[in-house]
């Protein structure tokens, strides 16, 4: 479904990615592990067109993403959603308005379209009942965990085929992290493919099917989540065991 072939990215004179390759198949949860500065966030940004690549190709549903010419909004419209690092909800807009922004790209031409959007509201409220309680509240007044839920819900309102999540557990109470990861499994069961970037390797490997390890801009290791969880190097470097 998504195939990243040996891409490189530079921020000015600084190279962030040297050689990153990965593949995500329809229906999977794939996680991208790595320490700070390994290039996880940059990889997601490159896929969603927020930063330009200087080498390699990205194939998305059998077409080269280069045809979108780095226009992020067109990549989103093709079914590839990116919930960016640090949540980035619209803090001055209400929870309801944030969700409406998620559905911004959706067509509203037929009653069927409108019904589908209504259905998706119900779906995200079932996943995250807290959001329904807080609909009129300003996004900025939510707790960190609730903001993360809102960020995921907002991305789901785009009805993506592939959802890319950047550090959904960052700075969130452990109890809420558990709730969010449960929700991710549920979202995946409903047919959304997930590419998850996560510092919390244990949690990520517990829900993922496959994983990639990123080190200083190179993909160095790949395998099923179970294989990597038992790999002594990984256990030492990322799982703290």
């Amino acid at each position: 479904m998504l195939k990243v072939n040996s891409i490189g990215v530079s921020y000015g004179a600084v190279r962030a990615l040297f050689d990153v390759s990965l593949e995500v198949k329809r229906g999977e949860i794939v996680t991208l592990l790595g320490s700070n500065g390994a290039g996880k966030t940059t990889t997601l940004r490159a896929i969603s067109g927020l930063v330009p690549t200087n080498k390699g190709q990205i194939h998305w549903k059998d077409q080269d993403l280069a045809i979108f010419n780095g226009q992020a909004h067109r990549i989103v419209q093709s079914g590839l959603s990116h919930s960016p690092e640090g949540r980035r909800i619209f803090s001055g807009l209400s929870v309801k308005e944030n969700l409406e922004m998620g559905a911004y790209i959706r067509s509203r031409k037929t009653t069927q379209d409108k019904l589908a959007i209504e259905e998706d509201y119900e779906k995200v409220f079932t996943l995250f009942p807290r959001l329904k309680e807080r609909l009129p509240q300003l996004g900025g007044t939510l707790s960190g965990g609730e903001q993360q839920m809102l960020a995921i819900a907002r991305a789901l309102m785009q009805r993506p085929e592939l959802l890319m999540l950047d550090e959904p557990s960052l700075g969130i109470a452990p109890l809420l992290v558990e709730a969010i990861f449960k929700a991710l499994v549920e979202i995946n069961k409903q047919g959304v493919t997930i590419l998850l970037v996560e510092q919390n390797a244990a949690a990520a490997l517990s829900i993922a099917h496959r994983a990639y390890v990123l080190e200083t801009g190179h993909t160095t290791l790949t395998g099923s989540a179970a294989e990597l969880a038992n790999n002594p190097k990984i256990r030492e470097a990322y799982l703290g065991a």
Partner: peptide
């Protein structure tokens, strides 16, 4: 209008607006 909402979202957070599929 929805155009206005798109304009506001750019002020709120440009990166988020882009990942919402808005042509910033």
């Amino acid at each position: 209008s929805s155009t206005g909402r798109a304009i506001l979202s750019i002020r709120e957070d440009e990166i988020a607006a882009r990942s919402m599929g808005i042509n910033v």
